[in-house]
Each structure stands twice: as structure tokens, then as C-alpha cells.
Design a binder for these strands. Structure first.
Lengths: 200, 200
DNA sequence: GCTGATGTGGTTCGATCGTATCGAAACGTG
DNA sequence: CACGTTTCGATACGATCGAACCACATCAGC
């Protein structure tokens, strides 16, 4: 078989063009010709590397999610050797805010895809599991905090984790729309974290 | 001038078709011909009553928001003569969840329009003010609750209101996607309300 | 050196898009 | 009744869409 390296590189390059267009004007403007122009490749390549337009959209989303997940894992690793539950919860929730260009683009693209998630089951699978996983992760961190005496023992970790995640997710739109500053959003989250971790 | 009555009726009828299509498959499928077919009117009427496609999208959004606001006001009025701050906060937050078909459709359509809000300032104006208004409303209700001794006096009403609204908004996607039941979402909100209004 | 699989570019096709246009029906007003 | 405005149906136009098609490169294995 021929060089596999280019394959991934090109797919990534094309996927980036899809993200830019989707984030700028929505999926309507993600046409094969526009993507080709944005990526600087002939339109024929999109057909070859992704097939139909639906497969292009799905493939670009998968690559986006993989990149975002990798970056999130890196930021978690940057917290140091033995990060406190509190710091981890904070980092997880901040992952849901558009605090840099990459997270911003990821979240806008997800918003552009959202309607598809509702009807197209194939599109939904990459996203359908992640929020549940985030909630579980935060819940386990809260329970860890309870074991350490940093979180009130009578607090329902599961429910509190779900609402914290929802709150962070709900802060996304106002920040993207420029109604809230990123600073304001992080302050609001920090305030909730202070409430949940009173002893730190 | 000829009958004005039909004018509004027809615009509403056409707008409903736009919502249905937008909610089902996103703005990409809101083509003039599809809308005409869905509304059961000749395509030429869309041109006459709304003009260009952009004006159609904008007009349909305005009609949707007006309807949603009217229904929300009705539900608030149904709370009775002198509703408690707690009941009002609950009702306001529940307005952000897809608890019936109308709210569900409204929120899905808003999701479909979201990308437009980010770039098209004309589209954004109907929505740009509402969340801020909701937050202020909840904050004033919390302050009212503080005056009545139902809410801890040292609680930051503004920040808590903002996070409650964000939390409700953040519960929207998982409910729409079927990850959370509506029951679960309302439970989570009720739990937060119990925390904020401990004395009721 | 031939062959077949793999990759690439350019072009074409039928369908559908948004919009403009033209003429006639419908209707209030004089 | 006649007239001008409003409403509306049908059609046409240029542009653009997704996808198919075709002619070449390129290169590994025989």
C-alpha cells in the first residue's frame, strides 16, 4: 500500500477547513467546493478521502473530537503529579468553556452540528457518551473530596456533579456570544467550587 | 388596504413550517421550496410575505420568540395571585427546559439558529438581551427571598442567579438528546432550589 | 517491462437553490 | 362600475450544489 502518512495529514488538513467553515457560518456553508477552496486542495480530494458529504462531516467531527480530547488530557496532565480533587474538578469544568481559540472553535463546531445529533444517530455517537462520562468523573472527584473531608459528607455527589457540569455547559453560549467575559464565567464556576469545597 | 388579518395568519403559518424544518434537519433544509411544501402554500407567497430567505429566517425567529414569550408569561400568571419567590424562580428555570413540545421545539430551533447568532448581528438581537434579563429576574427574586428570610443573607444573589440560569440552560442539551429524562433535569434544579431556599 | 492497485486532477451532469419577472385575480375605494 | 393597489400563481434564470465520471500519474510486485 502507498504512503499512509499523507493520508492522515490530508484528512486533518481538510477537516480543519470544515471546522473553520462550520464555525463561521454553520453547516450550510460547508459545501464540498468551499471546503476545497478553504483547504487549498482540489474538490476531488474530498471525495477520495471522505466520500460523500455526510461522511466528510462525520469524519471532520471525529477528528475534531480526537484533537480536543487529546488537548484536554494534556491540560489535565499539566496539573502536576498528585492534583487535588478540587483542582481536577476545576480543570474539567473549565474544559467546557471557550477559554482559548481551540476550545472556542471546538464548541462552536459542536453547536453547528447539534441539530444533526438530534436526528442522525451516526453523528451523535461521538458525543452521546461524553457528557455522562464527565458527570461521572466529577462525581467521583467529589466523592474523593468527601473521603478527604474537603466536601460535606451529606452532599449528593452525583446530583451536584451533574449540575456543575450543566452550569459550565450553560455558560458556554453567553461567553461565545460575548454577553459574559471568560473571566466572569470562570468566576462563577470558582464560586460554586468554593461552595462545594468549603474546606480548601 | 386589503385584509390585514390574513397577513399575520399566513406569516404565522409559514413561520411554523420554518420551525418544523429547522428543528428536524437544521437551517440547511430550510429552503424556500421545502418551506412552501411544508406550509402547503405556493413558494411565491414566501417571497411576498417575507422577501428574501434571510428575512424569512429572521421573521420566523421573531414570531417564534413572541409566541414563546407569551406562553411563558401565561405559565407565570398561572402560578396564582401572590406567588412565592421560590415558586417564581422554579418557574423561570423550568422555562429553559424542554418540558413540553412547544418549549422543546423553541429550544431546538434556537440551537439551529445559534451559529447565525454568532456572526449575524441582526439575527442575534432578539436573543442577545433575554438571558441577561432572566438572570436579573432571578437575582431580584433571590434578593426578595433574602428580605423574607428564606434565603441566606450572605449569598451573592447575582452570581447565584447567573449559575442557576446557566445550569438550567446547560441541562437543555442532555434532555433534548435523551441522555437525561425531563424528570431527572427538574429534580436536579429542584435540588439546587432547595439549597438556595433552605427555609421553605 | 508489464500490470493492477492506489492516488489525483479536471470536468461534467442532473437537480436544486434563491430570486426576479410577468400577468392576472381579488378587493377596497371613488 | 371602473380603477389602482394588493395579492398571488406560474415560470424562468443564472448560480451552485453533491456526486459521478474519465484520463493520467505513481509505484509495488511479478
Amino acid at each position: 500500500m502507498p504512503r499512509k502518512v499523507d493520508h492522515e495529514e490530508r484528512r486533518h488538513r481538510i477537516a480543519e477547513a470544515v471546522w473553520r467553515l462550520a464555525a463561521r457560518r454553520g453547516l450550510e456553508d460547508v459545501t464540498l467546493r468551499q471546503v476545497a477552496a478553504e483547504a487549498g486542495v482540489p474538490a476531488r480530494q474530498l471525495q477520495y478521502y471522505f466520500g460523500t458529504r455526510d461522511h466528510l462531516l462525520l469524519g471532520a467531527l471525529e477528528i475534531l473530537n480526537a484533537d480536543a480530547e487529546r488537548r484536554a488530557a494534556e491540560r489535565m496532565a499539566d496539573l502536576g503529579e498528585e492534583p487535588s480533587p478540587r483542582a481536577l474538578v476545576r480543570a474539567v469544568l473549565f474544559e467546557l468553556l471557550p477559554l482559548d481559540d481551540e476550545r472556542r472553535e471546538t464548541q462552536i463546531v459542536h453547536a453547528a452540528y447539534f441539530i444533526r445529533f438530534l436526528t442522525d444517530p451516526a453523528m451523535a455517537t461521538p458525543v452521546r457518551d461524553s457528557p455522562h462520562a464527565l458527570e461521572e468523573l466529577v462525581a467521583s472527584l467529589l466523592r474523593h473530596g468527601q473521603a478527604l473531608g474537603q466536601v460535606h459528607a451529606d452532599l449528593d455527589a452525583r446530583a451536584e456533579a451533574a449540575f456543575l457540569v450543566a452550569g459550565a455547559q450553560g455558560l458556554q453560549p453567553p461567553v461565545l456570544l460575548g454577553q459574559y467575559t471568560a473571566q466572569h464565567a470562570t468566576d462563577l464556576i470558582d464560586r460554586q467550587i468554593d461552595r462545594v469545597f468549603p474546606g480548601t
